[in-house]
Design a protein around this nucleic acid. Structure first.
Lengths: 157, 157
DNA sequence: CGGATATCAGTGTAACTGAAATAA
DNA sequence: CTTATTTCAGTTGCACTGATATCC
């Protein structure tokens, strides 16, 4: 069917797509990505910065290669991120004297403080994302997502 | 904490990330994207091809500009996709004689048949994605996703 | 003329690849 | 000699921008 004259065509994906779980999930992920990116930007941070700081806080200091493997961030991308975090005083990098190939990356006090601020930003973004859902629905949503991901992580997490 | 010697570090994102709804949603979306891409590839198609064919089947023939607006696909990307679909005989493009700026794109019989095959591939990918969930859980998951997206589409859909 | 369409070249970005220098 | 780590240059895929010829 050709659009009637004068009819402005707007964003309007077909029903078949809008009902596909894979499509809806991608749309929600896009929404989440926008919200998270915007919330971190308020503190001048981007996603990988938050990811790295969180890993250092929870899993401890590590070499760049290990950080990359834990978070599945490419070594080249880490190489772009870490100097920025170091310049802002959020992490300290030092040669590992037991294995002088390695740069051991550790969180600083300033990094810990920055992470606390980012944590609050991230939580606010989650609230905004889940705003249409009740508390019970939010828990249910999280449970279903976790169930879908258990295959990747293994059930023992 | 430095990794103990000999310990191989594997993919293991921190708990804080793994519990974030935004993060879990993105992971599930990545999983869905892999499954959908692989299922379409079995018939030599990619995502935008399926999207365009679906729109033509459900919403009817349209100009390239209108297809782009309906699906929010960039005009340049459409320009890459449509010649491929035309070459394979899945769509027909013809100058609109009432507005000779427009290329009216329409599904062919071969296109309709190809779409039927792709539809089955897509449904199989959904099944694979949702495999860990029961029937009731799948409906619940779809309901929650739709609720999160109602803000974008408006509630009247 | 202003505005829309289809086309095509080019830009910006992010994920990744290859390779060098250093060290184990 | 082989392997691992960090660094850095380059590639690829993708979304998007700018410009042009055509048409309303």
């Amino acid at each position: 069917m050709i659009e009637p004259e004068g009819e402005r065509v707007a964003y309007d994906p077909p029903e078949r797509l809008r009902r596909l779980p894979s499509w809806m999930t991608s749309e929600v992920a896009r929404m989440a990505s926008r919200l998270v990116t915007a919330s971190l930007a308020q503190d001048g941070a981007r996603r990988p910065h938050f990811t790295v700081l969180t890993s250092l806080a929870e899993q401890g200091a590590a070499s760049q290669a290990d950080i990359g493997r834990r978070l599945s961030i490419d070594r080249s991308d880490l190489h772009a991120i870490l100097p920025e975090l170091e310049r802002d005083g959020l992490v300290r990098r030092a040669r590992d004297e037991l294995d002088r190939r390695r740069n051991v990356v550790a969180l600083t006090a300033a990094g810990r403080a920055a992470l606390e601020r980012l944590d609050r930003r991230i939580d606010a973004a989650q609230d905004e994302l889940l705003e249409p859902l009740s508390g019970g629905e939010r828990r249910q949503f999280a449970r279903l997502l976790a169930k879908l991901l258990e295959r990747e992580w293994g059930p023992d997490r």
